[in-house]
Design a binder for these strands. Structure first.
Lengths: 165, 165
DNA sequence: CATTCTAACTTGACGCTTCAACCCACACTC
DNA sequence: GAGTGTGGGTTGAAGCGTCAAGTTAGAATG
């Protein structure tokens, strides 16, 4: 038999409602800005940006999917579109034919460069500017904790891997 | 001519990456739990829960859409499905025929009651348990600030409306 | 009381994401 | 080196959300 559930109290309830709203609305705001200004989705931007930050503008598909927080299947469909648009090329990894490498083209890089300034500006406006420095710091810690609860196998970037026992 | 964009520094970048990941992964975790245990989406649950919390298990469609953070169009499609499943009924508001009232049925209420315990448990596990009390408090404040930045016309619940000048 | 306006809601089509099935390259085993 | 396993990637179909267009009820205007 199950225990009586630990219902949320009034405080927690408000916090949860507010977080739930943010989950939806922040996403759609970022998507709307990117769609309006650049005609691409926020996810497509993340893919292009992920490539532009790689040393040779090249990444494995699986690596890219992780960066953009999407499934491999979703990425595959999206990269097919981006390839049709001439912003990305795909080729099998010469070192290991199981991997596929996605490479940013010149035109693709130009697109990211064009989109980036308005995007950071929007992130600043919606996320950082409304918060105090202390809140920004706490936000990082909060999101890292929640991310670990959601996916314990996840390794936060820039955090040294815990040494094996 | 545009100013040089205020790029994110290393700190901010990590915070933003972590928040972006949470935006996606928390949502999909909640969705996955609800789909697995109850065969419905998290959004559908929110709709049913929104009705179950109303005095007479009845709400206007537009009110419901706001509660569940979805468009009216999306809600209309979803309620059609919930109606087919026998969990919700729709009728025009007798007081004002422009509104549509959605009413939770007995079966619909039973469904929410069945789904609710595991849902709160999941919310606790993923959101509240990993955080300190102080972080929980700060989280509310952070999400409210971001929500206001995203949509300035939004009125946070349980916050007295600012008196007109 | 006719006209116009506004806002709530619905609908269908289109586009995107998911899901399951599949293919393929390499590793591992015997 | 044949057989099996594993994991990366792709594909097509099915389902869901969005968008634009349409419908309707009531308010506002004359």
């Amino acid at each position: 038999m199950a225990h009586e559930p630990r219902w949320l109290d009034a405080q927690e309830r408000q916090t949860w409602l507010s977080l739930g709203a943010m989950l939806i609305n922040l996403q759609s705001a970022l998507d709307a800005q990117m769609q309006r200004d650049q005609g691409i989705s926020h996810f497509e931007y993340q893919v292009l940006a992920g490539l532009s930050e790689a040393a040779d503008h090249t990444r494995r598909m699986s690596e890219l999917a992780g960066l953009a927080n999407g499934s491999l299947s979703r990425l595959s469909h999206v990269v097919k579109r981006l390839e049709r648009l001439g912003w990305v090329r795909r080729l099998p990894d010469p070192d290991d034919g199981r991997y596929t490498l996605a490479v940013l083209t010149e035109e693709g890089f130009a697109k990211v460069a064009e989109a980036a300034p308005a995007h950071v500006e929007e992130v600043r406006r919606l996320v950082f500017d409304p918060l105090t420095r202390a809140q920004q710091t706490t936000l990082r810690s909060i999101t890292e904790r929640i991310n670990r609860a959601v996916d314990p196998d996840r390794d936060e970037p820039d955090r040294p891997p815990r040494p094996p026992q």
